[in-house]
Computed example of a mutant assay.
Amino acid sequence: MSTPANAAASSARASSAAASSVAASNAAAATTRARARPWLTPRWRKAVLVLHILGAGAWIGIEVIFAVLVLVGWLSPDAQLAGLAFQALGTFVVTPMLTAGLVTLATGLLLGLGTQWGLTRFWWVFVKLVLTVVMAVLIVVALQPDMPAVVAQGEAIAAGAAPGAELRTLFFPPAVSLAALTFATTLAVAKPWGRMRGAGGRSQSRW
């Protein structure tokens, strides 16, 4: 049979357990907020954002130049001009493109890690990051190794040789990259899809 003393003790234990649970929940929430707290100050965040926009804009511009040079090489009736276009493409385009891509990637990582947007809290940030990494890697592993052959083809065309069939595939890299960069820009503006599952906290930062 329960006595008033036993009931009081049980009530005290229940209250203590509830208090411990609340304290643990508050501590976990405080830890989450501390981890989500941005370490980029507003001034630095704006500076990094400007660099990010400039890098992405330069990347898009270089891809457009890439496409224009390919079209000139394909369509020009002047063999000298066509050959010069391919030589310029193979010599001058890829290094600035990779630089712009790395600037875009590095500043994007800083903005993600240094603000409450994070890298894996929102789907649009994560997808944009994956696209940027994939395109930067493709420049190194798929595009850059072929540039010496493009230069050699340009020299041969300028000397009067017929264009090689492999040059007809050169339009695909800028076409794919421009589509991907346009999609990434749209993601940055529209910010669709919401949070990733398991991502807590509320974002206060604005890009």
Rank of each mutant, 00 (worst) to 15 (best):
K46R: 14
G61Q: 04
F92D: 08
N26Y: 07
Q80C: 06
S21H: 09
F66T: 09
L69S: 04
W39R: 09
S21F: 03
L71P: 05
F92E: 10
I53F: 10
N26V: 13
L54Y: 04
A30P: 03
T104S: 12
A88K: 10
V72F: 01
L98M: 14
T32H: 11
N26K: 14
R37K: 15
G108C: 07
T31F: 10
A36S: 14
A27D: 06
L113M: 10
T31A: 15
V94D: 09
A106T: 15
V94W: 09
G101S: 07
V68P: 04
A28R: 14
A34D: 11
A28G: 06
T107F: 03
K46N: 13
T104A: 15
R45W: 04
L69P: 04
A34T: 09
G61D: 04
A79D: 12
L51F: 12
V72D: 06
E63P: 06
A88I: 12
A82Q: 02
G101D: 06
T41C: 03
A85G: 06
L89A: 04
A56D: 09
L54N: 04
Q87T: 13
A28I: 04
A56Y: 14
T99Q: 06
V64Q: 08
K46M: 12
A29M: 08
P38T: 03
E63V: 10
Q116N: 15
L102W: 06
P77V: 02
S76K: 00
K46Q: 15
A28H: 08
D78S: 14
T99M: 13
G73K: 03
V103R: 01
T115S: 07
V68I: 15
A24W: 01
R35G: 14
V93E: 11
A23C: 02
G112C: 03
R35S: 12
A30F: 02
L54T: 09
S20P: 03
G55T: 01
A56Q: 10
F86Q: 05
T41Q: 07
S21V: 10
A28Q: 14
G112V: 04
A36Q: 15
A30V: 08
A34G: 13
G83M: 01
F92S: 11
A29D: 12
L105W: 03
L110Y: 02
L98H: 11
L110G: 09
M97P: 04
L109M: 12
R35H: 15
L40T: 02
R35M: 13
T107C: 05
R43L: 15
V48C: 00
M97G: 13
L113W: 14
A29E: 13
G55K: 00
G112T: 01
W74Y: 14
A67Y: 06
V93Q: 05
G83V: 05
L81E: 13
L40F: 00
F86M: 11
I60F: 15
